[in-house]
Amino acid sequence: MESKHNFQRPTFTFQLFFKEWIKSRWALLVTLLAFVGIITYTFIGMSTELRVLGAGTVWESIVMKGIIYFDSLKYLFLLAGVLLAVVQYTPEMINKRLKLTLHLPLPERRIVLSMLLYGLLALAVLFLLVYGAVRIGVGRYYPVEITQWNLAAILPWLWGGIAAYLLTAWITIEPAWKQRLCNGLVALCLLRLFYFDELPGAYAPLLPFLITLIVLSVSFSFYSIIRFKEGV
């Protein structure tokens, strides 16, 4: 009985999640298909290489030159984050519809946090699927060291996608174009930190610092919301 009762009166948070899902489902599907396409293509390439060139040659070039397979995913994580934030927050900014959302019977902070949380969870699920696919796929052909080498290469890009989502949300919610431009420049500098061309694993000492910046940048959108309410 209790479960039926909950089903009939779902919490506002879940209603908000559903609203965000309606806005973003097609974008998420497109992103998922793009990841599936590129990963499948990479694995076909990997298998062909081993078949045509032979395991000896391919393993030698990986072990001696540290070659990685997933370069093509580099900016896809970033695009995924930007796209999700755009489809979630642009409709809210058209005709200032965000005002209606903020008038829901929930504290404003909870509303904004729920919207951001939805986006972060959606990206987390998507990126975990990609991470898992790379792990399982590379592990089929190569030992764990080479799998970890490839995973270490994509890890900063993956966090870059999360950062791109939060920063795009911040920029999109900002009501003034001039300030949006300034936010955009700061966001570009921040995102650059995730995309240095370095050896896989080189980011290990830097990632805790970058993740701290990501956590703190959740607050950026609240700054934009306050400015939106002030009618700047």
């Binding site: 700061v186 500098c189 910046l213 609240f222 700054y223 306050i226």
Partner: peptide, 15 residues
């Protein structure tokens, strides 16, 4: 929020 923004922007721009 402004303080957090200034601190993070200062850090990033100081690089």
């Amino acid at each position: 929020y402004t303080i957090l923004l200034i601190l993070i922007t200062s850090l990033v721009l100081s690089w």
